[in-house]
């Protein structure tokens, strides 16, 4: 059994099958709680604990697929470029909103971490919580954080923003479609964007632009905090 893990066939197919199952469930029940990543992670963990296969071997086996994450992240430039063309007129307002959200997010997480005395490795792992996993995990790794915690924080944040977003819109009196998109993309990255797409196509487009800009900005600003945490 162990050599099946080693040659990646088992880890990759296990991930693929559980992820597809998660996607099916989400399509059927249309609940953001049924996030495919979340379902896949839970099923993989159940499988590993039942078979007694080590997590490290599973992760090593997934290495054959994981290297594609960097080229996939780079591809985000394509939709970003397309939305830049569509949203040209509103760009300054969008960029200002995203910048304010992304920077305040880092300040708040760092401040909270210092306040409740988190270990710095934990604060660093939580700081990229609102950006896309692609950039967030790479950042966490580079800064010496824990990629597992970062991924969990990012998925939780996205699901939370997706479920609570419509209520937040009412609470903050966000009626403007562009402003709503900025809020969903900056606070809830890809998962929030799927909710934004349900509200309106314009909100979805702004949201997907916002999530890439927020990710880029966080990548540039986050390292500046490394001396304070």
């Amino acid at each position: 059994m162990t050599d099946l893990l080693a040659i990646s066939v088992l880890p990759v197919s296990l991930t693929l099958i559980t992820f597809l199952a998660g996607q099916k469930l989400q399509k059927k029940f249309r609940s953001p709680l049924l996030n495919p990543i979340l379902i896949s992670v839970i099923l993989v963990l159940i499988f590993l604990s039942f078979t007694g296969l080590p997590v490290a071997d599973y992760k090593a086996g997934m290495g054959t697929l994981s290297w594609l994450l960097t080229p996939a992240t780079i591809c985000l430039a394509v939709p970003m470029y397309e939305q830049f063309q569509i949203l040209k007129k509103n760009l300054p307002m969008i960029l200002a909103g995203v910048a304010a959200g992304a920077v305040s997010c880092l300040i708040m997480v760092a401040g909270f971490g210092i306040l409740v005395n988190f270990e710095s490795i934990l604060t660093i792992s939580l700081m990229p919580k609102s950006i896309t996993t692609a950039i967030g995990v790479a950042l966490s790794e580079m800064m010496g954080g824990m990629p597992g915690v970062t991924t969990a924080a990012i998925v939780f944040t996205g699901i939370f923003a997706s479920i609570m977003g419509p209520a937040f819109c009412r609470l903050f009196r966000l009626t403007d479609e562009v402003a709503r998109g900025v809020a969903f993309g900056t606070a809830g990255h890809v998962i929030g964007t799927s909710k934004a797409n349900e509200l309106s196509p314009l909100t979805g487009a702004v949201s997907s632009l916002s999530l890439v800009v927020a990710g880029l900005l966080t990548a540039v600003v986050l390292p500046l905090f490394s001396n304070f945490i």
Binding site: F19, V55, V149
Partner: peptide
């Protein structure tokens, strides 16, 4: 297919 690649790092949370 990008979301697929987040499963492995998320599973790694048990290590932390």
């Amino acid at each position: 297919v990008m979301p697929l690649m987040f499963v492995a790092p998320a599973v790694g949370i048990v290590e932390n």
